Amino acid sequence: MSKVEVLGINFDNYSLEQFKNKLISRIDSRLSTFIVTANPEIVMLAQKDKRFLKIINSKADIVTADGIGIVLAGKMQKTPINERVTGYDLFVWLLHVANLRKLKVYLIGAKPEVIQAVKNKIDSEYSNIELVGYEDGYFTDDLDKVANRIAAKKPDMVFAAIGFPRQEQLLSILRKNNLPAIMMGVGGSFDVFSGKTKRAPLIFQKAHLEWFYRLLKEPTRFKRMLVLPQFVLEVRRNKKQK
């Protein structure tokens, strides 16, 4: 089963290695590629925001299950999803590919000090990457103007960390204009990559408890975490209706 639907969103049902192979093929062919890494929060927002849902289902070329909740939903529906594929893992791997191939990269999002830290780390650890642009997420221009600014730099990869659905709205404009680049919303990945936020230890990752680790470190995330039980209840309700 190459696609699995969870609450209206069509997930590509591949392993991390299969996603990597597909992306290498698209990079080789210089295909415009818009990636959405969807977690339960994104799915629940798309339930309310039909424009956002349309962007994901109609504009995205690849939709990965970023969150163990999505994988569990697949099991509940008896439509198993191969594995969780996180935006952070794809982001770091794509930087590795960009470094090997000496590609052009554009970064947008996060706080000024975070994006500067990301830029510094790329300069020191991924020296073959041509960083054609980097800017924080506190711009006031409309998204069309920002998209034009990015496209003018002719990047091979674009990573946006300006929060959903805004990052997907921005990248969908670039995709509509057929920018020949890999484009992905990466949420809080810049914070982790820069070292500002610590990623959960491997033991938490393997136990699929990264969300719990983040809650322990950032208790203020509690309200956001309430979406998880709501997501499970919605999946169960939806299953009964089918």
Rank of each mutant, 00 (worst) to 15 (best):
V118K: 10
K119M: 04
I122L: 13
I122M: 10
D123T: 14
S127P: 03
S127E: 14
N128R: 13
I129F: 07
G133V: 03
Y134T: 04
D136I: 07
G137Q: 04
G137A: 06
Y138K: 11
D142N: 14
D144Q: 14
A151F: 02
A151V: 01
A152P: 00
K154E: 14
K154H: 13
P155E: 12
M157Y: 11
V158I: 04
A160K: 03
A161N: 00
G163M: 02
P165R: 11
R166G: 08
Q167R: 09
E168V: 04
Q169W: 05
L170K: 05
L174P: 01
L174T: 02
R175C: 05
N177T: 06
N177G: 01
L179P: 11
I182M: 02
I182P: 00
M183Y: 07
M184P: 01
M184S: 06
M184G: 07
G185Y: 08
V186I: 15
V186F: 10
V186C: 06
G187P: 10
G187A: 11
S189T: 12
S189Q: 09
S189A: 15
F190Q: 03
V192N: 05
F193D: 03
F193N: 03
F193T: 05
K196A: 03
K198H: 11
K198I: 12
L202S: 11
I203S: 13
H208V: 00
L209Y: 00
W211G: 04
R214G: 09
L215E: 07
K217R: 14
